[in-house]
Write a protein that binds this DNA or RNA. Structure first.
Length: 207
DNA sequence: ATATCGATTATCT
DNA sequence: GATAATCGATATG
């Protein structure tokens, strides 16, 4: 296995659109007592901070979204629809509230543990895809919650949750509108790895 | 195969 | 009191 290096703070201190693109192909890492969960990032969305009507930062700084306004490279986790957690990483220099939402990852290691967390058996290829394709699903697979992980430093491998680069080269990126929003719903700020099976919301190939 | 709907709660108006 | 950066179950063609 190739060496996995944490992404430097400066990686995140930029426009979230650039961070989003460059996060594709990088690795999400969860260090647990028992072992390590890793997965490749295959789908993300950029949120542009206070000037973006769809962003949680659009109404200014609150207790909930404070991490977005803090230093780059930290986890902003929110609870949604009374059911699910979603993971973002803060971008831009401190004071600016851009972020990237993690929408889907491709499991690499610790797959059985992810399946246990999700409460599913891995039988068909549909089950595999079900594991981590969706912002709520990947958080459940990785045991990510607001209490446990909000404000966690994702730029440090001393954290239980962090982001790394294993040198993987990606092939193509597809850009589409963001999913599940009504304001600014037309802007092309969703980035996916072309043809990746674990991207959320895609139809499975017929037959 | 796609469409619709209910769950369930932190946060903000 | 309404809403939400979702998911999974159920219904229908």
């Amino acid at each position: 296995m190739a060496t996995l290096r944490p992404l430097p703070r400066a990686f995140f201190a930029r426009d979230p659109r650039r961070v989003a693109r460059q996060l594709l192909g990088k690795v999400l890492v969860r260090r647990e007592q028992h072992g390590v969960l890793t997965a490749r990032i295959v789908e993300v969305e950029a949120y542009l901070g206070e000037r973006d009507p769809a962003a949680h930062a659009s109404a200014g700084k609150t207790l909930r979204n404070a991490v977005l306004f803090g230093p780059p490279g930290h986890a902003y986790i929110y609870f949604i629809y009374g059911n699910h957690y979603c993971l973002n990483v803060s971008c831009e220099p401190e004071g600016k509230a851009g972020s990237v939402l993690f929408r889907a990852v491709e499991p690499l290691t610790g797959i059985e543990a992810m399946a246990r967390s999700r409460g599913i058996e891995l039988r068909s290829s549909k089950d595999w895809r079900n594991l981590t394709s969706g912002p709520g699903r990947l958080c459940e697979a990785f045991g990510i919650t607001r209490v446990r992980d909000n404000a966690c430093d994702l730029a440090s491998d001393a954290s239980s949750l962090w982001l790394g680069d294993d040198g993987c080269r990606i092939r193509g990126i597809v850009v589409t509108p963001r999913v599940g929003i009504v304001k600014a719903a037309d802007k092309p700020l969703r980035y996916v790895l072309a043809g990746n099976r674990f991207v959320s919301g895609l139809k499975l190939r017929p037959k």
